[in-house]
Amino acid sequence: MEVVKIENVTRVYQIGKLETRALQGVNLSIASEEFTSLVGPSGSGKTTLLQMIGCLDQPTSGRVIVNGKDVTKLNRNQRADMRRENIGFIFQFFALIPTLSAYENIEMPLLLNGQGAGERKARVMELLKAVDLTDRANNRPDQLSGGQQQRVAIARALAPKPALILADEPTANLDTENGRQVMDIMQKLNKDTGVTFVFATHDPRVINYARRVVTLQDGLIEKESKPVKK
């Protein structure tokens, strides 16, 4: 089943008189349970493409269909609802709310979804266990290491049981060991829960985890491949 369908998407940024074409007519389809990597040099359009899929930005032209719904036709609040219900995000800079504990950060999307207290608690504890942070539940982000923070971010992304998780350079701010741990967890969750992962990276070690690699160059898909495991 298709989770994401990108049809001839362009994204043009106008900065003063300067026009930058971040995406120049991208077509892409991502099926359910995929573990796909978007790769390419800086400025190739990886992050922009993730933002389009994640309803964080709107294309200049073309269509983006997520979970069967054309998100380019949604208004601001509907896109927020779409993100809350269907899409999880993992960012390079961890992106946790600094005033909330690990538990509360994971709980936040469930609160926004209006889930009951008992249901929320069970889900948060389940996720803390899945990312091996049960003993860190009450710690705030500044009391956690980078790897632990990224694991909390993964748990938060998974909390509302989304159809799709988008990760932008998820290991860029982590050392090798923590990067490996994070990728292992993502891979395991993909296998165990069937949630679709799409991640942008230029770290070769991360690319090796992907089952499908989409290479972008100058805002266009240059090629698709399967990584060669060493």
Partner: peptide, 13 residues
């Protein structure tokens, strides 16, 4: 940035 994060996880304006 925090506002961006809250928005990304689906918090309405």
């Amino acid at each position: 940035r925090e506002i961006g994060i809250l928005s990304a996880i689906g918090m309405r304006g």
